[in-house]
Amino acid sequence: MRNGWRRAAYAAACSLVVGLLSVLPASPAAAATGQISGLAGKCVDVAGASTANGTAVQLYDCNGTAAQQWNVGSDGTIRALGKCLDVSNNSTADGAQIHLWDCVGGANQQWVVTAARDIVNPQANKCLDVSGNNSANGTRLQIWTCTGAANQKWTAPATGGGTTPSGFVVTEAQFNQMFPSRNSFYTYSGLTAALSAYPAFANTGSDTVKKQEAAAFLANVNHETGGLVYIVEQNTANYPTYCDWSQSYGCPAGQAAYYGRGPIQLSWNFNYKAAGDALGIDLLGNPWLVQNDAAVAWKTGLWYWNTQNGPGTMTPHNAMVNGAGFGQTIRSINGSLECDGRNPAQVQSRVDAYNRFTGILGVTPGANLYC
């Protein structure tokens, strides 16, 4: 396409996956340990300080014992007494009870502590909740649809949500939850290293807008790469077609060197030239940097997001920070093929990912989701 963005082919016929897949790390990575307090100033407590699987997790007067010492890990777990905070029976239903269980790395043991002080289970997209809004000692904890009420607000020793030391509004634990089967090439550190190239990205407006923009970028990336699996375009037959010899600089890396690469599949010699010039990197001469250097790959995605209108009328960054909505980011990335009823299934795929990611970040998706 003339806008220079080829979509990775993930149809069943395309079975090649470039590189190995990484999985969510199983080992705990401590952020901090301490009490988690909530309704009426009481603490999250393991009943009887028991370490048996299935032990109730409850609200209780804060007493500083080991039954109230919780490790909020950057791996997404919350642990006490060597075991994990767990949603009973892997349920996603309102009222599903919380108990202690062996740490097994399941989605029902993943939690995000948001900047708004919610503790969210992303699988259920529900909040840790004090049953019946009852502050009596021994009241069971459960998950429930997030309401913002006092019985869902917590003060934790450290957050699995909010901002990271890098300043990015998506933590590594949240990133891993968004992309549990991502290719090991697409590192979180590569993404955060790329942020300095475009400091306004996910750093403009309210905390909600910042998180919505981050979710919108990552949702589109998710669609373009099959869940951060594909590094390069899968249809190799297209590779020789991305050289525009009418450009004065030609194609110094070769006729077939400018195929789609990276999180938004940068393609065509003129896009490699423009992105490289903007980033101070010779991508025209060495386009392979986009598939070999994670930070460079992420920078090319952020270059497009923050500076290019594509087939739309605004940059995706401006669409999110100025309230135009997620649908306009789709239009700017691939609107000529997907928007206005051309491919509603592809649009829905992007919207579904955006809804899922805003849920992980604990914010509403906003309006105007479709194009």
Rank of each mutant, 00 (worst) to 15 (best):
N151R: 13
N238S: 14
K153R: 14
L81A: 11
T192P: 13
N334L: 06
A256P: 04
A319M: 12
T159N: 12
V18N: 15
Q212V: 00
G48R: 08
G310Y: 07
N125E: 11
N368H: 15
C251G: 01
G362Q: 01
L85K: 08
F168L: 01
I281E: 07
R182W: 06
G327M: 15
C62E: 02
Q328T: 15
L20H: 14
D86H: 05
S27P: 03
N151K: 08
V104L: 15
Q234E: 14
N309V: 14
A158Q: 07
P263Q: 11
W303I: 10
G138H: 00
E224S: 06
C84N: 14
L279G: 08
D102P: 09
S349E: 13
L24C: 10
V229F: 05
Y10Q: 12
L266S: 04
V46C: 08
A107S: 15
V169F: 00
L289Q: 14
Q58D: 01
G190F: 02
G48I: 05
T164R: 00
V104G: 13
Q97A: 11
Q123S: 15
G34W: 02
A13F: 06
T114P: 00
C371V: 11
S131H: 04
N334S: 08
T225Q: 09
Q308H: 08
T329A: 14
A115F: 01
Q177L: 14
S37V: 13
N90S: 15
R261V: 09
G227T: 04
S91H: 08
N133K: 06
A31D: 10
N334K: 06
L128C: 00
G323N: 12
C62W: 00
K126R: 15
N271T: 05
G310V: 10
Q109N: 12
L81V: 13
A8F: 10
G162A: 01
A49P: 08
K153E: 08
L289V: 05
R342P: 09
G260F: 10
K83R: 15
K273Q: 09
R140Y: 11
S184D: 02
F175G: 06
P252H: 01
C84Y: 12
M1S: 15
N108K: 14
N368E: 13
T145N: 11
L195G: 06
